[in-house]
Amino acid sequence: MRIGLITGDPGHPVLAATAALLGRRHEVLAVDPAGPADASADVYLLKARTPQALALARELERGGAPVVNSAAATELCQDRVRMAELARGAGLPFAATGDAGRLAELVAPAHPFVVKSRHSRRHDLVARVDDPDRLRELAARWPDEPVVTQPFVPGTGWDQKLWVVDRQVFAARRQSELASGSGKSGPAEDWEPPADRAALALRVGEVFGLDVYGVDLLDGPAEPVIVDVNAFPGIRGRAGAPEALAALALRVAAERGRIPVG
C-alpha cells in the first residue's frame, strides 16, 4: 500500500512518527503541495493548507483518491466567518464572530475584544485589544488584513486545546497569552478533558466533516466557548496520536476499496 503525505514539511514530528509506523509494512511518500497530481497512492493525508495544496487535493479527489481531510473541509476551516456561521447554525457554542473588513477600517466594538485574521494560516493575526492605542498599533502593522472580531472571554486564563484523530481525543491546556496580556503562551500541560468537552470536540468533527482536527476552547460564563477549529493541526507531543493517524489512513483506504480489510 502507498500513503501520500501532502506536506511541505515531511519532517514534522507527528508526520515523521506516523510515516515511521506505516513504513514498517507500507510505502510512504511525501507529496509536494505545489507539484503535479500523482494519483499513485492509495490514500492521502492533507497536512498542507496552501492554495496549491488544496488545488492538488481537489484534483486527486476528482480522480477518486481518498484525501484526509477533504479539500472542502480543510478550506472551510481557513475562513473564520464561514466557520462561525456553520458552527453556530449547528448549535455549537462558537464565539460570536463578526466580519470586520480590513483592519484599518475596523470600527471597534466595546473593549476589550479579540481581533483575528479572517483567513486562518500560520503566523496570522490573533490579538487582544484593550484600548484605541492598541488598535491603532495593530492597524499600522496590518492595515489591509481582512479580520474578524470576537468578544474577549476572560474565563480561567487557560486555553484548552483538544485534538481529534479518527474520534480519538487528545488534549492539553496552557496559560493564555490573551488572558495574561503578556503576548506569550505558557507551556502546554497534560490535561484530561471533562466528558462534556470531549463530546463537544467530537461533535465539531461531525459538523465540519473532519477526521483530523483541533478545537480551541475557553471557559465561558455558562458553558465552554469554541474560539477556533483547525484542520490537521500539529498535535505535538501527544502520545498515541501517530498511531491513531496511521490507523486512520489504513482504515480510509480499506473503506474506499484500496486495500483488503484485515
Rank of each mutant, 00 (worst) to 15 (best):
T156S: 15
S185Y: 05
V114K: 05
L106A: 05
V126I: 14
R174E: 13
F94Q: 02
D196E: 15
D133T: 15
V165I: 14
V147N: 07
A104V: 14
L135K: 06
Y213G: 10
V153N: 10
R203H: 09
H111L: 14
K161N: 11
A90P: 03
K161G: 00
G205F: 07
D99E: 13
A140V: 10
L92E: 02
W158V: 00
R203I: 05
D166P: 10
V153E: 15
P109L: 08
P112I: 05
F152S: 08
R134G: 14
A188K: 11
P112T: 03
S117M: 05
A171F: 03
V212Y: 11
L103P: 08
V129Q: 06
S185Q: 07
G214M: 12
D211Y: 10
E145D: 03
F94C: 00
A188I: 00
L106W: 07
A127T: 04
A140N: 07
D211R: 15
E206K: 06
G183D: 11
T156D: 15
V153D: 10
A201M: 10
V107N: 12
A201R: 11
Q175W: 13
V147H: 11
H111F: 15
L106M: 04
A140F: 09
A127P: 06
G91A: 01
L202G: 09
L86Q: 11
S180D: 04
V212A: 09
S182D: 03
E189W: 01
